[in-house]
């Protein structure tokens, strides 16, 4: 008797909570990214996360820190969001350490955090969804090895110094390409994720190493500049280029024969998954304890062979 009363009570409470959630309206989701200016990857990822959240019945807004290095601004945004008592923060952190204190604070306030593309330290977020940048770059390196026939000289144009994503790509490529081969990495310099600076770094590296066979660009956002540098040095067609990202821009370059491969990642998929998981945890349909700390959003090597089909789901 008592048992059934208790059961009834629990059921009532459960219904109540569900209703409360329904009455409180939609979960409030904040999508926080580095910048939407000049970074198509972040733009598409953010839009995908927002659109998915709205599709799932949430109220979603995009916030941008406003720069590739605007760490303080991002921390402020998170603090404000905690004050506004949002339910879910889907975020691409600018700096893996700087956000840790605000993440802790958010967790204490019951805010659900999902990381995209770039990870944070600690375990205050429910999961981290990203390309496995190291493995993806290794994929590109294997293809490069094959194309060079196991010997030659290569250059790497890195991302901004201190970016873990950039470092993973650089290391994944470098570690793999020298393994079991006579290939040498003769230069590796930062292009700071921008076209102009990648161009200058590439020009200068080409002066020191006129006989390079292949360049690995850590982002499609720098490949345009690298190609200009190669063209200006009069080495068009003699230096192979492999890029990273798999944006439609990169794929078009493959179709035009300007680069030989692009390691694809899927920002739209990352954004959608992040929104789904965040809202799932909020609704209780996803158990955060059962989630892995890292979810690989997958990668794919795009070459001339699969360029056309890849264009369909590229960003």
């Amino acid at each position: 008797m008592l048992k059934s009363v208790l059961k009834l009570c629990f059921a009532a409470i459960a219904v109540n909570i569900l209703f409360a959630a329904a009455f409180a309206g939609q979960p409030r989701v904040a999508v926080v990214v580095k910048t939407l200016t000049g970074d198509v990857f972040q733009l598409k990822m953010a839009e995908a996360a927002r659109d998915k959240a709205i599709e799932l019945g949430a109220d979603a807004t995009i916030y941008q820190a406003g720069g590739q290095t605007a760490v303080q601004r991002m921390v402020q945004i998170i603090e404000d969001l905690i004050t506004q008592q949002v339910d879910v923060i889907v975020i691409s952190p600018l700096d893996s350490k700087a956000v840790v204190p605000v993440f802790q604070q958010a967790k204490e306030e019951g805010v659900i955090i999902v990381c995209m593309d770039q990870v944070a330290e600690g375990d205050d977020y429910v999961t981290f969804i990203s390309t496995d940048n190291y493995a993806a770059a290794a994929l590109g390196a294997e293809f490069a090895k094959e194309q060079l026939g196991g010997k030659g000289k290569v250059l790497v144009v890195e991302g901004a110094p201190g970016s873990s994503v950039g470092d993973d790509r650089k290391n994944g490529f470098k570690d793999t390409i020298v393994k079991d081969s006579r290939i040498e990495v003769v230069g590796s310099q930062s292009g700071y994720w921008t076209n102009e600076r990648a161009m200058a770094a590439m020009e200068n590296m080409l002066q020191a190493n006129p006989g390079v066979d292949l360049v690995f660009s850590c982002s499609d956002g720098m490949t345009g500049g690298i190609l200009e540098a190669i063209k200006l040095a009069g080495k068009e067609g003699r230096i192979k280029v492999i890029s990273f990202d798999g944006s439609s821009f990169g794929i078009e370059l493959i179709k035009e024969g300007k680069i030989i491969a692009d390691v694809a990642q899927f920002p739209i998929k990352i954004g959608q998954m992040a929104a789904e998981i965040g809202i799932g945890v909020f609704n209780g349909t996803v158990d955060p304890a059962s989630l892995p700390k890292f979810i690989d959003s997958g990668t794919k090597l795009i070459t001339a062979e699969n360029a056309d089909e890849s264009l369909a789901d590229a960003f």
Binding site: G187, Q189, A200, N204, A208
Partner: peptide, 13 residues
């Protein structure tokens, strides 16, 4: 002064 840094492959730091 940027040039030899690239030529000599000196880390940006």
């Amino acid at each position: 002064i940027q040039n030899p840094i690239n030529l000599l492959n000196i880390p940006v730091a």
